[in-house]
Design a protein around this nucleic acid. Sequence first.
DNA 1: CTGACTATATTCAACATGCATATAGTAAGA
DNA 2: TCTTACTATATGCATGTTGAATATAGTCAG
Lengths: 123, 123
Amino acid sequence: MEKRGFRCCDIKYHKMERLLEICLLLLLFENEGYGYGLIEQLSDYGFTGEDLNIGSLYRTLRKLEDQDLVSSVWKEANQGPKRRVYTITDRGKEELHNWLPVLKERKARIEQVIATYEKITSV
Amino acid sequence: MEKRGFRCCDIKYHKMERLLEICLLLLLFENEGYGYGLIEQLSDYGFTGEDLNIGSLYRTLRKLEDQDLVSSVWKEANQGPKRRVYTITDRGKEELHNWLPVLKERKARIEQVIATYEKITSV
DNA sequence: CTGACTATATTCAACATGCATATAGTAAGA
DNA sequence: TCTTACTATATGCATGTTGAATATAGTCAG
């Protein structure tokens, strides 16, 4: 059989797809924020240096704005260059609300896999 | 600002990426199985009709075989066409084992998002 | 022999992500 | 002033995952 492209259980591919945009909505639900400044806050949700790609961060923020889930304005900073400061919209709050049952289902499915595995291997 | 391609919080995009291959490894850890027959068993892990794509199922099984995580042989069935029956390999068991901490981390991160959201909205 | 069912497989397009790179303003120090 | 480091935003390319649609073919009942 010919080999097709693949990648094994590599730590680089354990990212939590689409969780970034959910976490961004959640952070912006709490307070307005700007790209660079959100990096540190994202670490609270497990996006450490290796897990967070700066390019993805900015791309995701722009995507959220295209969907009218957040809006942005340029603001002067006390120090350094201007910042594009994001605020969550009503649609964004609704979106975040809609994600909740999805997250709960994800959680339940993951729990079931873990439980089944541990049941099997404990024999 | 020009619009870029996007898709809103659409149920079709809430799939659990890469969970399919983990569930397949888990099912094959319990018993050998074949593509079509695994469809029903996957429903135990939340892969109902809408969540499971048959093409993805076969594609994923072949990918797992390329990675030597499973192996397959053709077997006659009591009824109907021959089946490509899959068995998990030692490497597959190891892979499944390696996924466990990743799943636990995913679970923890999802739980934190849920907890934070509920804390904010309960005010 | 025909249609329903079982079973496996592939192609195409859409989308998400990582990595690298580009751009530019600010600030501190030699 | 010049240079370097830092802050800040943004884009291009390659890779990988997925869904939908489609292709192929054997089995079995009537």
